[in-house]
Amino acid sequence: MENMQKLIDIMAKLRDPKDGCAWDVEQTFETIAPYTIEEAYEVSEAIDNNDMDALKDELGDLLFQAVFHARMAEEAGHFNFDDVVGAISDKMIRRHPHVFGDENYRNAEEQTVAWEEQKAKERAAKKQHSILDGVTVGLPALTRAVKLQKRAARVGFDWPETSQVVDKLNEEMAELSAELVAENKDHDKIEEEFGDMMFVYANLARHLKIDPEQALKKANNKFTRRFNQIETEVENSDKSFDEYSLDELEEMWVKAKKAEK
């Protein structure tokens, strides 16, 4: 707790209009928000790399973001860091009555159901009446798509069979293809159809119990790994990238792909 108070005091000093840091003093919720998101992703990256030293540092950076936002809120008279800690503590106790209350033991599946029921009650108390209320707009689009679809599925608005999702995906791909070959191409319409297709891709991932963000992250890493091998081969040759034909580069790609098997 001494270290926590130390960090809170450091933040207050940094935000001091007279003796603080000019950059920190100038920041607002809006300007700091992108850094908060970035720090959360860096925490995720440290976990993916199983780098505990990095994870310790990144969690500290993310904690600092919470302290930063709480300090700005305190200055504006909204709440302080203690209020933030109190609110999340109360929420965790409220959502775990089987641990902190009199309810019986729940297994993981039962707790997931109860968690969602409690969240629904909390949304109702906030006068959020739509099934889709509370799904954060700031989430990565694929992640938000899955969460929206999960909410709709709770009231039966969902394809019962994965094959039906695949059929819908084929339908959306056909609609996109039609826009691409249209005589008068409409970029906005093409973007719309592409978005529809991606939304169904997210739905297919949900049906397959795949996290689409995680799947795409792995695909990005795989592409980077294989492309780096192509770069190494080019660097060790007597030609530059632009002197290779696409067929030659594709041959290197296939070689890099086979090397991983």
Rank of each mutant, 00 (worst) to 15 (best):
Phe81Asn: 01
Lys18Leu: 12
Glu192Asn: 13
Leu176Gln: 05
Met11Val: 03
Phe64Asp: 06
Val166Ala: 11
Ala174Trp: 02
Ala141Ser: 11
Glu243Met: 11
Ala40Val: 09
Ala70His: 03
Met52Gln: 09
Gln118Ala: 09
Asp133Gln: 02
Val113Lys: 14
Gln118Leu: 12
Asp19Glu: 15
Asn170Tyr: 05
Gln27Met: 12
Lys121Cys: 08
Gly195Glu: 04
Glu251Leu: 09
Gln164Ile: 01
Glu192Gln: 09
Leu132Arg: 11
Val165Trp: 05
His98Glu: 15
Met72Thr: 03
Glu39Ala: 11
Pro140Met: 03
Thr28Pro: 05
Glu26Thr: 12
Glu192Thr: 09
Ser240Trp: 11
Val155Cys: 03
Phe81Trp: 09
Asp82Val: 09
Gly60Gln: 03
Asp186Met: 07
Ala87Gly: 06
Ala40Ile: 10
Ser245Ile: 02
Glu75Phe: 01
Asp53Gly: 10
Asn220Phe: 10
Ile88Leu: 10
Val25Met: 00
Met52Ala: 01
Arg106Val: 00
Gln229Arg: 10
Glu179Leu: 02
Ala76Gln: 15
His98Gln: 13
Trp115His: 15
Glu122His: 00
Asp57Trp: 01
Gln118Met: 14
Val43Ser: 05
Val165Gly: 04
Glu161Cys: 02
Gln5Arg: 15
Leu176Trp: 00
Arg151Val: 03
Asp167Met: 08
Glu39Ser: 06
Ile190Trp: 05
Glu233Asp: 13
